[in-house]
Each structure stands twice: as structure tokens, then as C-alpha cells.
Simulated assay, not measured.
Amino acid sequence: MRIAFFVNSIESETPSYTTTALALAAVQRGHSVVYVEPGDFILRPDDSLAVSVAVVPEAPYKTSEKLHAALQDAATQKKTLAISDIDILHLRNDPSLDATDRPWAANAGLMFGRLAAERGVIVVNDPDGLGKAQSKLYLQTFPEVVRPATLISRSVAEIRGFIDQHSEGCIVKPLQGSGGKNVFHIATPGDSNLNQIFEAASGDGYLIA
């Protein structure tokens, strides 16, 4: 099989990434491996989908470091394939890494992943499922029995009222975002830093408490 790994950028990949380990395992099992970046898709006037790929050379790689080095060399000599030449497309990028500096790239995997799936490519994970899980609002679709009491709002008054109802404390953080940025533990309703916390966390939009 030909397996494609969609990543934020080939240059930023490292030997320690899980994607590199997956690619190494695939090559060692006799599969062809290619890497795809956000700017590599081509949707032509006849509605055919193509993709520019970095082809990992077939070789008896023993370590992730060896495969990673070969990938970096391959990135300078990309070739264009019809999407039908790809059997499996793994969406391995982190959209949050592109959200600020390259917003056009953040959702490229989801958009073109859907088009690839429509054309018969196995896409992992499902682009529609990933799209639904782009914010913590997705957690509210879970059964109430498995999730904590939650408030989502931009109203400071609403959030203060929610905190007042939870004397044991609660967590306040942006609805969007990742990596632990602007996540605050409010120990008591009388926390003296509430205004600063709200100001810091709400800069990214809605808050979830």
C-alpha cells in the first residue's frame, strides 16, 4: 500500500514524533510512505484531486533517525500523484500550530481529507469527526453522566455565578486552544485574581468553566 502522512511541515518533523515511528513501521512492513504538507493539494478543473508528495525512499531503515534524514532529503524533490494513487491518508497535523501564522493551513487537512475520502481514499481519522472535535464544545455531546457540570459563555457575570455554585473550585479555560495555554484553576469563589483570569482567558473567545 501507499500510505500518506499529512503533517504541518516536513521540516518541523523530528525522529521522536509518533508520525516518524508510524512511517518507520510502515516502511519496514513493505509499504510505500509519502509525506504531504498543507500546501500540497491540487483540485483541478475536471474535479480530479492530486497531491504533491515527498516520497520516503525504500530502504532497510533500522532507526527513526535514519528515516527522518531520508525524509528531509526527499522533501526537496517532491512528485505529484493522483489522489487515487494513495491508499491511506493519515491526518497527523496539529491545526493549532498553524492557527496564528498560517490560518489557511489549519483546516487544509480536514477540507482536502474530505475530498480524498469522497474519492475512495481511507482517511484516518475521519475528517468529519475531527471537524466536530475542533473545540471543547464537542465534549457536550457526550452523555451527561460522563462529563462534569459545565458552563460555556463570554459573560463574566454568568461565569462568576457558576463559580459561586462550586465552592470546591473549578477550571476556567478558553473553549478553543490547546497545550495548556490560559488554563486556570480557581480554588474559591473569592479568588482575588478573577478579573485578570477572565481577561487573559477570554482573549481567545468563549470560556468554558
Results as ranks from 00 to 15, higher is better:
177 G>K: 03
100 T>K: 00
115 L>T: 00
73 D>M: 15
150 T>K: 09
100 T>C: 01
16 S>A: 07
80 T>V: 14
156 V>H: 04
85 D>I: 01
146 V>Q: 05
148 P>C: 04
61 Y>S: 11
9 S>Q: 15
58 E>C: 05
66 K>E: 15
94 D>T: 10
13 E>C: 13
151 L>V: 05
174 P>D: 09
15 P>W: 10
43 L>G: 11
93 N>S: 05
115 L>Q: 08
53 V>R: 01
43 L>W: 06
87 D>W: 06
41 F>K: 09
137 L>H: 13
89 L>Q: 13
81 L>Y: 01
19 T>A: 03
47 D>Y: 13
162 F>G: 02
169 G>C: 01
152 I>L: 09
11 E>D: 13
200 A>E: 12
201 A>L: 03
33 V>P: 09
172 V>E: 11
148 P>H: 03
147 R>Y: 08
185 H>N: 14
78 K>H: 06
111 M>G: 00
192 S>D: 09
90 H>G: 04
45 P>F: 12
162 F>A: 04
130 L>E: 07
186 I>T: 10
39 G>D: 13
96 S>T: 01
59 A>W: 14
10 I>Q: 00
66 K>T: 15
14 T>G: 01
19 T>N: 01
78 K>Q: 07
77 Q>G: 06
186 I>Y: 00
32 S>M: 13
2 R>Y: 02
64 S>R: 14
46 D>N: 15
